[in-house]
Design a protein around this nucleic acid. Structure first.
Lengths: 209, 209
DNA sequence: TGTACATCAGTGAACGCGCGTTCACTGATGTAC
DNA sequence: TGTACATCAGTGAACGCGCGTTCACTGATGTAC
């Protein structure tokens, strides 16, 4: 062999990684085989030594992006005290940095609509990863597992919807406002007692800004 | 002229209408000029008598879809008593019918990510329409205009995020669960008193199902 | 009222570019002897 | 230890299809006289 054993796997991973960034930045139709290989420092002809088709790469890159998002959340949880975990995830998710860097951010708001258009098989694979995210978030929420799961689902929807809206709004005042109200709404989900919700939400919001 | 004065405008409108459905169903890259003209009962060559380019049609169809969504909300408001307006909008938005018919539904969850990738000019046009939606929803919410606006923004993010998640999840149990928790979370935004929020939310949720 | 001409939405063949895919080839390294 | 051969990731030219766009043409109707 021309290259060491790990070489092919490394090249493969490099292509997938680059693709997952471009995918989130430009969508499933925004990446071309030739451009992608060039970015990975290769020529387009070698592509088919790694993937059956362009479509196969897209699916792999989709999955990689999701796995990275989940891994990041886990890491963030491990790096934070239990009390701060939920708010730290929410604040990082609804930060201007995340809004402005879709290429390295969560795959759901960037690619969710395109995933929803895929066939049942692909969609199921993503629903499974979505389920992982729900579980991870539910762990940080008060109440029984059933209530925590429901709150986690509502929070996820709010987080992803907020980032989507904030990106449409751009980077102006309205966009920042979306991030802010999204944070408030999401953090309210973590409050166990409705009676204390109002003040607790305000405290959490001021910590976030 | 071969055709009456209104004829061209009617044809133009028919193409835009068909395109806006296909756009929401398949995304901005999912529609071809030839297919589209065929659906409108024409041949592809005539396309350029109506539009400067494929891109120009896409923008027009985007806008048409947004305008229709807003018009539908207005109509729904007009058809409902003031007390029921908010919940009627939320329940219609987070219904299985809406989830399963993206082609005739809200443009934001279907095309938001693609709009976010457009240039500032296009994005501003959509942000303006988003602002209309916020205003319309805020009218149905309690509290001062500032608080109502913030709640409307949070609600919109939750609605759109929920539909997106529900579509990824497909049509199974998890998808229905998303719609349900999304409704609960959105309806909670309409409750003026935090202290009464819990019971009020439950009442609203049972009304929705 | 009738006739000649102008208009222009729509037709369908053709063009050409981009892009996914194929393929014969390269050349460095691993393996067999 | 050295030599011949096999392997295979990567190269770059070429292919071919789809699709956006162009263009010469049609033919029904409006307008001018």
């Amino acid at each position: 062999m021309r290259y060491s054993k790990e070489h092919k796997a490394e090249t493969h991973a490099r292509i997938v990684k680059k693709a997952s960034v471009r995918l989130r930045e430009r969508g499933a139709h925004g990446i071309g085989v030739a451009d992608l290989m060039k970015e990975a420092g290769l020529t387009h002809g070698g592509f088919y030594a790694h993937f059956d088709s362009r479509e196969a790469l897209v699916v792999e890159a989709f999955e990689y992006a999701m796995d990275r998002s989940i891994a990041r959340w886990r890491q963030q949880s491990a790096d934070t005290t239990p009390e701060e975990r939920f708010s730290s995830i929410v604040n990082a998710y609804l930060s201007p940095q995340h809004r402005d860097n879709p290429g390295h951010g969560c795959a759901m708001p960037a690619l969710g609509a395109e995933i929803a258009r895929e066939g049942p098989k692909t969609r199921r694979a993503f629903a499974a990863k979505l389920d992982d995210m729900i579980g991870l978030l539910a762990e940080q929420l008060p109440g029984g597992p059933d209530r925590a799961r429901k709150q986690a689902m509502a929070t996820l929807a709010t987080l992803m919807g907020t980032i989507l809206m904030a990106r449409i709004a751009g980077t102006g005042e309205m966009s920042d406002e979306f991030l802010k109200v999204g944070r408030d709404a999401a953090l309210a989900h973590a409050m166990p007692q409705p009676a204390t919700r109002r003040t607790a939400t305000k405290k959490a919001a001021s910590r976030a800004s």
